[in-house]
Write a protein that binds this DNA or RNA. Sequence first.
DNA 1: CTGAAAGCGCTAACAC
DNA 2: GTGTTAGCGCTTTCAG
Lengths: 347, 347
Amino acid sequence: MLNGGSVPKRVTIDDVARHAGVHKATVSRALNAHTQVQVNAETAERVRAAARELGYVPNFVARGLRLNHSMTVGVIIPDVANPIFPPIMRGIEECLQPRGYTALLANTDGQSAVEDAAFHSLLQRRVDGFIVATGRLDDQPVIAGAFGDGVPVVMVNRWAGSAPYPVVTADNERGIRAAVEHLHELGHRRIAHLAGPANFSTTHQRAEAFSAVTASMAGVAASVVQAGALSAEAGATAMDELLARQGSSRPTAVIAANDLVALGAIRSLRAHGLRCPEDVSIVGYNDMPFAADFWPALTTVRIPLREIGLQGARMLLDAIEAGHQEPATVTLPVTLVVRGSTAIASS
Amino acid sequence: MLNGGSVPKRVTIDDVARHAGVHKATVSRALNAHTQVQVNAETAERVRAAARELGYVPNFVARGLRLNHSMTVGVIIPDVANPIFPPIMRGIEECLQPRGYTALLANTDGQSAVEDAAFHSLLQRRVDGFIVATGRLDDQPVIAGAFGDGVPVVMVNRWAGSAPYPVVTADNERGIRAAVEHLHELGHRRIAHLAGPANFSTTHQRAEAFSAVTASMAGVAASVVQAGALSAEAGATAMDELLARQGSSRPTAVIAANDLVALGAIRSLRAHGLRCPEDVSIVGYNDMPFAADFWPALTTVRIPLREIGLQGARMLLDAIEAGHQEPATVTLPVTLVVRGSTAIASS
DNA sequence: CTGAAAGCGCTAACAC
DNA sequence: GTGTTAGCGCTTTCAG
């Protein structure tokens, strides 16, 4: 049996004090970089030695209670298993770790109830701030409520409709424009958009941009079909619908709301005996990990996932440390990555 | 400006007590499911009303300090962006959340120094236990040291050499056996293994199993080449080496240490003008997300990632709540998933 | 430069 | 059924 029943009592600052023959206040001062100067060099050394010998591990929760912070931030995402989030989280961690913070993670599966519960749970744990990736344009009263609690929040990737939080996102308008222009240059004139849910800021903007950009191009016939979700299944269904409805004036190219939807569209094409890119070109969005290993390798708009996380975390920590935050919006640049799923229009 | 400079003072249990006209101890009792019975029903209702009106959020860190637990577990993984970990984390969360725990996440990139720092940082935050996925067969003194601290640890997927911790993993021997038998049935007689690092328990076992299984099969010529890491790049390099070295007696099938290595092997094949599966069959390991969307769709050994996380978390929480743990090993079953990357041997 | 004392927000004896 | 008291482990005035 490991740890047979009784946990060995953890060593506290008092133990170290006793062992070094000083008062615990002196130990505290000696061990904190900030206050180290206040204590005699050799006393400090004696304290450090005592701490080492006893295997002292400072208790951050006690310290946090006293100092009113937890050095902890809550990260709320829909689903770690959605491939765009891991890179964002890496970016977040990259910023947090050297600054002494750690992330408390919560998945919500996009369900409001779970989201509220997670938010509340993290609030109870006194996280110093939130990074939320579950923004929806329709109301999110609970998240919006953090505003009143004075806990800083930054939105990443998507933003919320109601709450005036800072957000770091990528440039949807330019991404879509690049995709449309790429297809246009390849000779495509009938282009469709497999749009994502209208209550995500990202997919909403992409759909708007698609309409705006195609409307301004002479000779381009644009159509939009709605995908019910940002999944391959929904993408396949939407593509089925497009293929059924269009008859002879079928589009020769489609821009999907994201890579998962694009993946579904490719499956649908295959199921209909059509080839990508020979019969229909497809462009995705996000450049999710392994997008280059699909068949065909996906042409897609790359968004700087890691950078979004990094900047979001940086903005949050700055706000935490400053004690207030400004509702800034930072929009990061995107780039079109041309691979095998787009080709010259055949018809 | 949001939260203009001064954070609104958080409401405490004392505020609620004052507002409800009772003592804070009564508030505590009224609000804790456990002790609710001790208080008069209408007093309790008055307290709840007061809490609601004031927007009281219990402070878990204060409570944790008093109760000596944090309702928090540390999850140490090499890299969230490695596709096998998100499903494991989902499994972990699935168990943690309903039981009131939340996960503190740390990535280590497989570097011992980072790992030690993460471990220490989580220890300072007084996590109630650890789930570690970074096991290595060679020594990990810091992780092993947790043993002495009396903090429960469970290893998931990989295990460590030195520390006697419980572990939940998948059956490597059977997985490799299934892969070899599948290839044998397809007529392959020259089979190679692209082995992973020998200091991971998983890839070590797979390599051992490969040798054992092929040795017991008449007429099978087996060879092993070492991949330097579990990445597509390392897989491609290893495959290059295999292709260069084998000359005319080139293997007709290869079993990779994992899907990433398999992906690299496929790229190498393509670079050499060889086709998969027509010229060489490839089987991966893990059935990582999107393995079915690669080209060709990967035949691979599926390991129950989510289940590994789920069970690992369950074992940990049980140990935390019991106050001690037994060094159990649970080995979960695997299944071979046959897709497009394996075919009948052509030569 | 160091010690004494107070208190962060909470819960658990212990009274009554 | 409810109030009083003490104290979890730490940092920070305030004295000296």
